[in-house]
Design a protein around this nucleic acid. Structure first.
Lengths: 339, 339
DNA sequence: CTGTTAGCGCTTTCAT
DNA sequence: ATGAAAGCGCTAACAG
């Protein structure tokens, strides 16, 4: 049987109230009483019962994070880094993290959010991979549950977010390719319902337009952010005549798939075809050839989201409720052979 | 203000108790009363307050999972797959999952476990990457907190686990290499304190011995399970004279690093040097060349661990408290060029 | 069938 | 400086 406040109270001969206050550090407890209580609590191995505290305080000091898992072969370098950032920052603030996973494309997604919110399991949530029309955001906004997102959305209403400027990123990488002499540039976008797909497409088109290069609509394609998806999309692109001489992938994982497709086509990546990604996952500098990509500080973003959310929960006003970070173009040999 | 049992009770004119029982599906409530209560609850949008229930029931229906995050560039394909398995299975049983992360090599690891246990935040835990002497296991055993592990340990005492037979796996892959004509075989082991490092080493030595091949002690090395670690270890191996003609890496991620090192050494992987991994992460079939490896059903293991733990929490006796799965040797071109 | 009563362990007025 | 009392929202033993 775990030690409770009552056990301590009985032992030291004070009331539960006093024990509670002493432990909570209130200053209306006699110095000596406090010392006695603290020491006894220590000796008896007291640790507060968190659910009881949650009930009484009507808050959980717990954050929720829902992640979509893409089947048995799920593996997402992006996600583990974000999770690490969120989790480590939460721990720093003595917050717990409740993670709910759900199989992909199921109605279970909103379900998972509702479950956490309705049961008052969490005080706030972190959302990632925001969508243009995002029911999760709409739901939390409607429920007035605090949350912070990685990514913007067109959902009506204001909410705190951190995002990486995908449009600026794509302008950079597209310009880079154009500078390298490419004119036939293709792009494999993230799924169109994801908000960041839009921005990246816009950046791509803007950079092409400013150089007065035509955008071949057949070269604007979509992939599901997996290696497979990148591979397949790249194959389709390379089968065309004329084929593009450069491919920008929506993330590094798809870029890796594209590299594989190009190689199968007998092309030397970096020399005969340029391929670029987005994210700069750890693997990116170790692909063959190393991958040109746009770096986003994923771990830091996780920490930041977590900090913002906790500040919000503490009733603080955010100085910067909307943070737009600039991605950094990292040039490697997949676009510049001699880099 | 969320709706409580009391609100419903007042509305329908029954006691809180009756409402509670009707909602819980007890059969000692009049059919009509139950219908009325159910409908009213529905209309009012009632959802139980979970912390209150946890307090009263003295259980949380929550599982704990603590993960070590290796710094800002943390990315672990293995872990996201395991997490997906655990999380999805937990959801199926209406269990929540509390994830605690901690920066690596910190005293924070045990801290995280203690926090979850002491605060009665979770009913049980899942442990991964078990160690030969594992303080986490010792702690949970001592506290009599239910848990299940991925991997065995030499810690005194019995506990449920699922493991993959690394020794058998290494016998298989080593034999395979020997069959391919290799005699100078090196190995990059996982850190020696991890239990599975032992088994793999044993398997390697057994297979070498049965073919009466000498094990060069300089060719038995260790890596930290990262790409970098694999790369560095492989470099050191390849700098030796004579150099090994085959390298077995402790996991696929290190194998990928080893492939990079070999390529930098001007070697054609699969032809001039054979490299094998362990895990069969999704990326393994997409490396260049595709990687020979030992497949472990990580997602399934996650589900299984979760199921075992939940069964345990329900007071059931496990029919198979110790599950040893056989890894499957997947032969690809990193060891057999024409595969 | 339904209600009364008694908590679960904690925090927080409000007296004294 | 300390304690009594109330209550967070729920469950369960026991009456009737």
């Amino acid at each position: 049987m775990p030690v409770t406040l009552r056990d301590i109270a009985e032992k030291v001969g004070y009331s539960i109230t006093t024990v509670s206050r002493a432990l909570a550090g209130y200053d209306d407890v006699a110095e000596e009483t406090r010392r006695l209580i603290l020491q006894t609590a220590q000796e008896m191995g007291y640790h507060p019962n968190i659910p009881a505290r949650q009930l009484q305080r009507r808050r959980t000091d717990t954050l929720g994070f829902v992640i979509a898992t893409f089947g048995p072969r799920f593996s997402d370098p992006f996600l583990s880094e974000l999770l690490a950032g969120i989790g480590n920052e939460a721990a720093r603030h003595e917050f717990d993290l409740l993670v709910a996973t759900h199989p992909p494309r199921s109605a279970n997604e909103l379900h998972a959010y509702r479950r956490l919110v309705r049961g008052r399991r969490v005080d706030g949530l972190i959302i990632t991979r925001t969508r243009v029309h995002d029911e999760r955001i709409a739901y939390l906004l409607e429920q007035k549950v605090p949350f912070a997102t990685f990514g913007r959305s067109e959902v009506e209403g204001d909410f705190p977010w951190v995002d990486v400027d995908g449009e600026a990123g794509l302008v950079q990488v597209t310009r880079h390719l154009i500078q390298q002499g490419h004119r036939r540039i293709a792009i494999i976008l993230p799924p169109a319902d994801l908000m960041f797909s839009r921005f990246r497409e816009a950046g791509f088109r803007r950079a092409m337009a400013e150089s007065e290069l035509p955008v071949q609509e057949a070269w604007v394609t979509w992939g599901d952010l997996t290696e497979q998806g990148g591979y397949q999309a790249a194959r389709r692109l390379l089968d065309q005549h004329p084929a593009p001489t450069a491919i920008i992938a929506g993330n590094d994982v798809m870029a890796i798939g594209a590299i594989r497709a190009a190689r199968e086509h007998g092309l030397t990546v970096g020399r005969e075809i340029a391929i670029a990604g987005f994210d700069d996952i750890p693997m990116a500098e170790h692909t063959t050839p190393p991958l040109t990509t746009l770096r986003q500080p994923i771990y830091e973003i996780g920490r930041r989201l977590c900090r913002m959310l906790i500040a919000l929960l503490r009733g603080e006003t955010l100085e910067h409720p909307h943070v737009l970070l600039q991605p950094e173009l990292v040039i490697r040999q997949s676009t510049v052979p001699e880099a």
